[in-house]
Write a protein that binds this DNA or RNA. Structure first.
Lengths: 241, 241
DNA sequence: GTATTCAAGCTTGCATGGAAGATGGCGCGC
DNA sequence: GCGCGCCATCTTCCATGCAAGCTTGAATAC
């Protein structure tokens, strides 16, 4: 938890949020704890005391407590009355739930993007292809982290171009929950090429304005990824991530 | 805001939540404010002061403040720094966003339910048909509120049988946001029969275990409802609900 | 040695006070 | 009359105090 500082960075880009306001201590605490959970400085299962976190962040218990409430709402922690903050672990069944949400949301997003008017649609397709190019490059260089970043950027772009703040927020919350699992399983993946191919198919459907094809392409992409990942988790006996 | 009492009722059935704990003051405040917003005791656009709400609920400002944070996370209010709690209104564009989320989630839910093993699947289909029967009865009697309740029960059952806590939570949050709009537009609806027919189609697909058909039926049902509702809102010039 | 009780120390829940920011009205200058 | 600036007031933000609940471990009875 060494790097857990009240980084001045914005709390979280909420998608549909346009009101700019300077971050409060609560925002700082929220961002710091969220980052600490994402990069596993706070390991799942760890039970922290609000007092201790407050001390470390150089603030009182109140903002930490309020940030914990937000994190609980996001599904990242559980606030146990009079016991502390529990960092939640992910079971394989949680991954199943998460994938179903993603399959639903990205499918609809792809459909929506493919139905945009020409200008926006082509811009979106171009952005998607650019990210896929980056993925292909990273794969050729054997740069796995870069591949992961580009893959994330592709899916983020797909959602963002659907212009639906609520979808963006939901997907972001879900991604936060599964971030650790994604990082872990990046090394287990075998079929990186398939992703590139499938991304191309999605981008092509968007470019053509074929909503039905875009929906199916996005769904199949995520369904295949899930069917590849879940057995992997089981075989490795990963009960919690 | 007369009925806004710290009703002893549970805070909110979180779906995947099994930890039973007696409600705290924060839970009371959350439930009371949520109910007040739902039934429009707190009108959209109204700017409340935490102090005033606390006074009315017979507690101090702290639990009200923390409940407000949760409500903000749910998208029901906006906490304006040093200005108060703003009850959010819904613009037609918000309804478009909400419908896209619902179309995505219920479509996937229907698909999942149709893919359940025989026992559960048939039980689900039976439950869906029962709710549809109630709707038909209510329609025959001209009992619009009962029709609305049965319609809500149908869609809630569809989601619940998909056995995905995250989906349940997301859909519940979205339903909270659109509850007022649904109540309002109930009176404007013309095509109640169509809903019954489409519900039957969904239930039939579930019973047959036809996931593809269930997905399409659920999607088309919501798409039609949206295409019927949005123009209605526009024509009535309803800028915020 | 084992089981039971109880107390001390830890934790958060909630109340409250001080401080700082936002707002609206009033008075002053023009 | 009209606009501008200032101040009173209202609001939240955050720190802190107190009380209550849970856990742990030691001491005692057997």
């Amino acid at each position: 938890m060494a790097r857990m500082q009240p980084s001045g960075g914005r709390a979280v880009p909420t998608g549909a949020d346009e009101g700019e306001k300077r971050p409060s201590l609560v925002d700082d605490a929220y961002a710091a704890m969220r980052a600490a959970i994402r990069d596993a400085s706070f390991a799942p299962g760890y039970q922290a005391s609000e007092q201790e976190i407050a001390l470390r962040l150089g603030m009182s218990r109140t903002p930490v407590h309020e940030a914990a409430i937000r994190l609980q709402e996001d599904g990242l922690v559980r606030v146990l009355p009079r016991k502390g903050i529990l960092i939640l672990a992910l079971a394989p069944d949680d991954m199943r739930e998460i994938y179903d949400v993603i399959i639903a949301m990205e499918g609809r997003a792809a459909e929506l993007v493919a139905a945009l008017p020409d200008g926006e649609r082509l811009a979106a397709a171009q952005a998607l292809d650019a990210h896929t190019d980056t993925m292909a490059d990273a794969h050729a260089r054997g740069d796995l982290p870069a591949w992961g970043r580009a893959d994330g950027a592709f899916h983020a772009a797909l959602i963002e171009h659907a212009r639906n703040g609520r979808m963006s927020r939901i997907v972001q919350a879900i991604n936060d929950q599964s971030h650790r699992a994604r990082m872990l399983t990046l090394n287990l993946r075998r079929t990186l090429e398939a992703s590139v191919t499938e991304h191309r198919r999605i981008a092509r459907a968007v470019r053509a304005g074929d909503a039905v094809e875009a929906l199916d392409a996005a769904r199949q992409h995520r369904i295949r990824a899930r069917d590849e990942l879940l057995p992997l988790l089981d075989s490795y006996g990963l009960k919690h991530l």
